[in-house]
Design a protein around this nucleic acid. Structure first.
Lengths: 117, 117
DNA sequence: CGGCATCCTTCTGGATACTG
DNA sequence: CAGTATCCAGAAGGATGCCG
């Protein structure tokens, strides 16, 4: 047991890191929203409502708020008439692009494997 | 609208891919379980119960079953006394290692940013 | 040891209607 | 347009006990 301490500590840190990440990204829609902002750049509320198929305005609103709190997404109210609101990734949010890309790529391969089988 | 068709189709495929991935990986514990198997290799049920802090045996059982159905995890019953069961990543499951590593790395940086601030 | 069954509580999230 | 408010069903998930 003694000789495993460094190893166990290592795992402790890892599981904590995973947990931290999932705290921010968990939720049925967050990744999809981020993927849309990643792909489209600036995006309005109603655009996102279309991008992320199946999401309700309530959930979109809530998830965007979560993402904003975690500084992954920036919200800008435009002085148009009627009002429009623009969402985009923050610089910090953009650090998730690699992850999103990998999730995307894996999804492509997974679909090939499942459907193409 | 016409000139955007290829672009829209592209997005359709992307959002579908993301959705496919999240279908398999969503759930409060799946990533943590996979991370443990990724880090430790072969792992028994009770080991995982310790690795993934906070998980109940019921949820661990359920999540492992999901992962097994999706061919990400292999379950082996060992003929010991009393019985022990060993879980490990399948070859397919190992294709998720890159994603897990990135989630882990991001978690480290995120914690630095949040705590170290 | 590795689960499954049961009960019960909390959270998620959909539908609808309403507001500035 | 971009939300909020309310209501409600179902899923997630914890605690406990039982079983081979």
């Amino acid at each position: 047991m003694e000789d495993n301490n460094s190893c166990n500590n290592d795992w402790e840190k890892r599981i904590m890191a995973i947990h931290d990440t999932m705290d921010v990204l968990s939720g049925k829609w967050k990744i999809s929203i981020l993927a849309s902002l990643c792909y489209h750049g600036k995006r309005r509320f109603s655009d996102l409502l279309n991008d992320v198929k199946g999401i309700s305005n309530k959930m979109l609103s809530k998830e965007l708020k979560d993402l904003e709190i975690n500084r992954l997404v920036k919200r800008t109210v435009l002085d148009t008439h009627p009002i429009t609101v623009q969402y985009e990734l923050t610089e910090y949010g953009k650090t998730l692009r690699t992850i999103i890309k990998h999730l995307l790529d894996w999804g492509f391969e997974h679909r090939k494997k499942i459907i193409g089988k």
